[in-house]
Design a protein around this nucleic acid. Structure first.
Lengths: 161, 161
DNA sequence: TATTGTTATACTCTATAACTATA
DNA sequence: TATAGTTATAGAGTATAACAATA
């Protein structure tokens, strides 16, 4: 069930003039980066469709979710946590604020920083959005048992955390 | 060991004026898309460094690797296999050709199509590049046992294949 | 009529340098 | 001096529409 086929050496080749009917990706499938990227893009494709009604793309969603679960979090903390660059967060935050989903309040101890808080409207949106996201993910991972799903999450976190 | 903590509801919040010291990402960590993307980006980051000497980025690498293992493969087949769009492959193929890594030969049965073949130079480069990629991946997944690594690959493929 | 490969182009995402205000 | 937030901008990646040549 977890068997992985041996990758073919690049030197092994078909005759020069023959056509390929079935493309062999055995080697690429041995690479974690390739598989993780393909799996992520597959999920994100559906994510974009399902979350479009909320006006949220993956990064917007992760930022909003993190703000909801961490009221008062700063931009810098968001960047460090979600691996974003500060300049790329500025417009995103402004957009969320102008939509009335978040508020910027002065930081309690640091006059340079700004605490980000979800408004009631933003909180309500995210309750629905998170429900939608979780549902979509369960659909996309339908071939996995709940135990396999837990295992997969834990193993992925061992790579990037 | 594979335990997954319960996600906190978005409604649960700290007091409005308090600062966040440790950012809670419990909910995002329950999402496969988030974890797969973070893991992929973590691996790709090192991939870019290590494969830069070969002049190969992830997409170049996957295209070259697929051509090596499938001599005579067409652009369309590459697009379908690697989930790329034809217009975005044109410049990439031209670049690989001008570097002397691949050759374009007429397709045996289809006058519209062009068969792509790795040159000896391209094959030699890819033997080294694939070795480097495999090494880097083993480093990045060092926290996983070989059995866990196999499991992870198989589970990811259940999502996107 | 459908498909392969191509061109042109637009849009999004990501990255870098430099500035200001505060610590 | 270092850090938070910001601005401007450049580069890479990804997307759509339309075309010529061939099936």
């Amino acid at each position: 069930m977890t068997a992985v086929k041996k990758a073919r050496s690049p030197k092994v080749a078909h005759a020069s003039g023959s056509a390929i009917d079935q493309v062999d990706t055995t080697y690429l499938q041995t690479l974690m980066g390739y598989n993780a990227r393909r799996a992520a893009l597959s999920i994100i494709e559906l994510f974009l469709e399902r979350l479009a009604p909320y006006g949220l793309k993956p990064v917007d969603f992760s930022v909003m979710s993190t703000i909801c679960h961490n009221p008062g979090v700063t931009s810098r903390q968001l960047c460090a946590t979600l691996n974003l660059l500060p300049p790329n967060l500025v417009g995103l935050i402004q957009s969320l604020e102008s939509r009335g989903l978040i508020e910027r309040k002065p930081h309690p101890h640091d006059g340079r920083a700004v605490g980000l808080h979800a408004t009631p409207k933003g909180q309500e949106l995210m309750v629905q959005a998170e429900r939608t996201a979780t549902e979509l993910e369960i659909e996309k991972t339908a071939k996995l048992t709940p135990a396999q799903r837990k295992t997969l999450l834990a193993l992925l976190q061992k790579i990037y955390l």
